[in-house]
Design a binder for these strands. Structure first.
Lengths: 124, 124
DNA sequence: ATCTCTGCAAATGTTTTGCATCAGC
DNA sequence: GCTGATGCAAAACATTTGCAGAGAT
């Protein structure tokens, strides 16, 4: 059975209060100040556990280490600041990219990635 | 001054003939059969050099190691096969995603990423 | 008391770097 | 011959795992 420990509560709290996707080192730093002595291995193990439990969702940006945020936010996309490198959630967006940015945010570029099956694998 | 070596020619050839973005291990395998004894370090060093020279462009998919392709292909997006994991170039695409897929390719999902500056960094 | 969770340290996998040697110019 | 490029091995860096001991139930 799953146990409630100070470390897990700290990690939970950090992710809950951030309201944006965070990287493992970010989570580690923030949670360490709540639960001193916390180890990096525990952060990774807890993230993996929370992913399996469907509590967390991975946010993977091209060319960057994955970040994690609360699951169950519905379909949405993300915005990364080129200065501070933080990642923010966007809502209700489809293709009018600049329309869905929070006020004050400046759009500089976008990437679109498609996934599926190539001809060889689709027919095989 | 830059020198023309068998190793560089091999790596060049491999990337030229592939016509799709390749990962360092893929490049290593393919180039090794042209230039036996080739080392992984040389592959990475040559990739970096070619990036600096503007000969190569990085293709970074979310959650995956970067691939590389010839630079100067103009703005385009990419398609990764969920079966064989190969990445292909797409052309002339904007937002009618399924319209721009090569014949026989099946679209399963897409990701959109926006980049720019958040309010804090834009006004700072 | 049991059995999970934790921290540490060692292992892993990938990319980078140091260095002596090799080869293009 | 000079100087940049190479291969190997070691280093760096991020993530994972083994293990003995701490802590939740």
């Amino acid at each position: 059975m799953e146990r409630t420990t100070a470390q897990r509560k700290a990690i939970h709290t950090v992710l809950e209060e951030a309201g944006r996707p965070m990287s493992p080192p970010e989570i580690f730093e923030a949670a360490r100040s709540i639960a001193p002595g916390l180890g990096m291995a525990t952060v990774y193990r807890t993230i993996k556990r929370m992913l399996d439990d469907g509590v967390l969702a991975a946010v993977e940006l091209p060319g960057e280490a994955p970040r994690y945020e609360r699951a169950g936010l519905g379909h949405h996309h993300h915005f990364r600041c080129n200065d501070c490198n933080k990642v923010f959630d966007l809502t209700g967006c489809a293709s009018a990219f600049d329309k869905c940015l929070p006020k004050g945010f400046a759009l500089e570029s976008h990437e679109i990635f498609l996934f599926g099956r190539c001809e060889t694998c689709a027919t095989g």
